[in-house]
Design a protein around this nucleic acid. Structure first.
Lengths: 138, 138
DNA sequence: TCCGTAGTTCGTAAGTTATGAACTATGGAA
DNA sequence: TTCCATAGTTCATAACTTACGAACTACGGA
């Protein structure tokens, strides 16, 4: 019930946490990308690195993802060191930190993304063959 | 409370589940290797692929891992398609399926293992610098 | 000042994981 | 044979993690 000061520097109030590249761990990266939604977000972000906003991804992976869930996924990617987010007015700009990660773990992200493409190619082909089912759900 | 038939073919009773290589997923692999204990087991198994038993790994990662936990970790690695286990008398022989995975996701496992080595190199160096603390635990 | 948009936080329900205790299977010794 | 030790598995449960709706904050116009 405190009067609550309204500051002019929101970044200081709710700072976005970005680990330094030296604190980025393999465990964190694998865990973050082991989630299919986050992998899809990351892949799409990497493919079109013009700094996309969060709400761009409401429909990755062919189902609607609630705002709050998306927000958590972005936090996970950010705190794993995979993306860098910057507030820009009312929205957020997200970019991959692939350059930095490439220096720390050379070849890791490209290999994972390549595997991701292999798999999504397979899925697309399977979906074309019998278009009734979509990948798994009834 | 049934009399319970004792069969001569235990493999048929409690079969070990190994996915076919086509059912191995990127998600499964990343999830399995995102756990530090499993990553250590896999790395050690990959380095010395002479088919190690489970109990060899009671002390990976500088703390004792309970048998039941180890058993679950091996199951996770097996069901992710990362290792193949064969019963051999009273024990189990575990080998990596790296050859197969390399065909399906070329470069993936080598890149992860390389990153793993980068990180464990760092940890070893840090531990040498101040030998009091061991990597994190009190 | 009010409104709409973009995201975050919180509480909770659902799912996952770790581990001790009890169990199964196997190979050898008595 | 029967008994024992060894190697792993299964089960129950406590601890942790995750997903998502509701309520909230922040910003930029009208």
């Amino acid at each position: 019930m405190e009067p609550k000061v309204k500051t002019c520097y929101p970044e200081q109030v709710r700072p976005l946490i970005h680990p330094s590249i030296d604190d980025v761990t393999l465990e964190g990266i694998l865990h973050a990308l082991a989630d299919p939604v986050r992998a899809a977000i990351y892949a799409q972000l990497a493919a079109s690195d013009g700094a996309a906003t969060c709400s761009t991804f409401v429909n990755v992976i062919d189902r609607e993802i609630p705002k709050s869930t998306l927000s958590q996924h972005f936090r996970a990617l950010r705190e794993a060191g995979l993306v860098r987010s910057e507030r820009n007015g009312v929205e957020m700009r997200n970019k991959t930190r692939c350059r930095e990660i490439e220096q720390r773990f050379p070849g890791l992200i490209p290999a994972i993304m390549k595997a991701y493409m292999v798999e999504s190619g397979e899925k697309a082909r399977a979906a074309k063959r019998k278009p009734a089912k979509k990948t798994r759900a009834a």
